[in-house]
Structures are given as C-alpha cells and as structure tokens.
C-alpha cells in the first residue's frame, strides 16, 4: 500500500494538473491579500472558495485520475498485491497530493503576509483542516462513482451532479423545508440535516469560528448547546470523521467485488 501511495503521489506531484491546482491557490492567496491586505477578509473569501470549490475540484480530479489510471490499475492487479491495498494506495496518493497543493498553495502567501504572527492563525488552520477533509471525502465519492460507471461521460456527469446536489440544491431544498414548517420546533432537525451533508458540515465548522456571535442569536436550546459549548466543534469533527470513513469503506467494498 505504501509503495503504491508513494508512486502515485510521486506521479501526481509531477503532473501538470497538480501545478495548475497549486498555482490556483497560490495566486488566489496572493491576489486576495494584495487586494485588501486584510487577512480576516481574505479568510472569509477563502472559506467560500474552500467549501465550494475544493469538493468540485476533488471530485473532478478523482474521476479523471481513476479513468486515466484504469489500465495501470489493471497492471497492478496482476501483481502480487492485495486488491484493497492498490485502491487505498492510489486513493491516498491523490487525496494527499491535492491536500498538499491546497496547504502549500495557500500557506505560502499567508506566510509571506505575516499570517503566522496574526490572530487568524487558528481560523486559517481550521480552513486547511476542513479543506483536507473535503478533499479526502470527495475523492472517495469520485472513486465510488467511477467504480460503478465504466462510461467516462456518465462518470463525469454523475460527479458534477453529486457536487451540484450537495453544494447548492441540498441547501435550497433544506431552506424551503425550514420555511414551510417554521411553526414546528426545527432546531434539532436543522442541525441533523446540516450534518448529513459534508459541505454544510464544513461550513458549520468554519462558522463556529467566524460567526459565533450571530449563531448565538438563535433562541433554541439545542442550538444554544450546540453553538455555545465545545459540543458543536466536537460533534462536527466526529461526524466529519464518519463522513470520511463511510465513503472509504463503500469504495473498498465495491473495489474488492469489481470485475476489471
């Protein structure tokens, strides 16, 4: 597993796309900081980008990578290696190199602009953790999609659909439900629904840091407990781990049963 991880990371770190992704974050960081030299505002903008774009890029990259390495995966399958190790090796290779691009790409401009001496270091750190989680989750989702779909066009289609559903449609439906049923106590419901979507979950994790004052404005006891104590951060992180583990397990199960 580690050998495959090593080689796929090595391969990816030298690919053009990794550089594109890396420079995207690098340029983004510099532009944001150069434009307003206000680190907190940059953190907020980057939060929007991380929560929305990181999943999209991860899922597209995941699908692309899987289809591109399919034949190589078959070559590996004929080698004396356990099946699941091949998959996990490649999965980690992709997720880690995407996360590295993100961390280094954003880290350099922030370091240059003296972030590591400012108060927002924790916010920034949280952003990177969330970005990392999203990379790992959406690469796993991408692999699941490709394992079920041999057809590339279909695979890409489903990937974009999944992203669109989780990033936009889900929240729209969620908001409409809340508005329709506003006569009922909805605070537990709304927290649970938020947790069921990894994008919303990451957003809440960051909100806990950036917008705590507004979140405490809501009167519900459940909200108050969730946002007012360490419970929010703790349970969000726990669910995040669950969100990471379930797609990985599904992915491995499908891979072990798949015919190549």
């Amino acid at each position: 597993m580690f050998k495959i991880f090593k080689y796929s990371t090595y391969d990816l770190l030298r690919s053009r796309w990794s550089y594109v992704y890396f420079s995207f974050y690098l340029i983004l960081g510099f532009v944001l900081l150069f434009l307003n030299s206000d680190v907190s505002k940059a953190v907020i903008t980057i939060m929007n980008i991380i929560v929305i774009l990181t999943p999209l890029i991860a899922i597209i990259f995941g699908v692309m990578y899987y289809y591109n390495t399919k034949e190589f995966t078959e070559l590996l399958l004929a080698q004396p290696i356990k099946r699941s190790k091949i998959l996990i090796g490649q999965y980690l290779g992709l997720s880690v190199s995407l996360s590295l691009s993100l961390i280094v790409g954003l880290g350099i401009p922030f370091a240059v602009y003296g972030l590591f001496m400012s108060m927002v270091i924790f916010d920034f750190f949280l952003l990177l953790v969330v970005g990392g989680f999203l990379n790992f989750i959406f690469v796993a989702l991408a692999f699941i999609i490709t394992l079920y779909n041999e057809n590339r066009i279909k695979g890409f289609g489903y990937a974009i659909l999944v992203w669109l559903l989780l990033a936009v449609v889900y929240d729209g439906v969620f908001m409409i439900i809340l508005i329709i049923f506003k006569e009922y106590p909805l605070d537990t419901f709304s927290l649970v629904v938020t947790m069921l979507n990894p994008i919303d979950l990451s957003r809440i994790l960051i909100l806990l840091e950036l917008d705590i004052s507004v979140l405490l404005g809501y009167t519900g006891a459940v909200f108050k407990k969730f946002f007012g104590t360490g419970m929010g951060m703790l349970s969000s992180l726990t669910v995040m781990f669950v969100w990471l583990i379930i797609p990985i397990l599904l992915m491995i199960r499908k891979f072990n049963k798949k015919d190549f």
């Binding site: 929007n48 929560v51 936009v168 929240d171 809340l178 709304s190 994008i199 919303d200 960051i206 979140l215």
Partner: peptide, 11 residues
C-alpha cells in the same frame, strides 16, 4: 431563525 445554519452557503 433556523435557516441561520445556512449562513454563507452558496445557495
């Protein structure tokens, strides 16, 4: 007020 959890979402 519950829609507050959607703060800063793309939608």
């Amino acid at each position: 007020p519950e829609t507050l959890v959607l703060l800063r979402s793309l939608f």
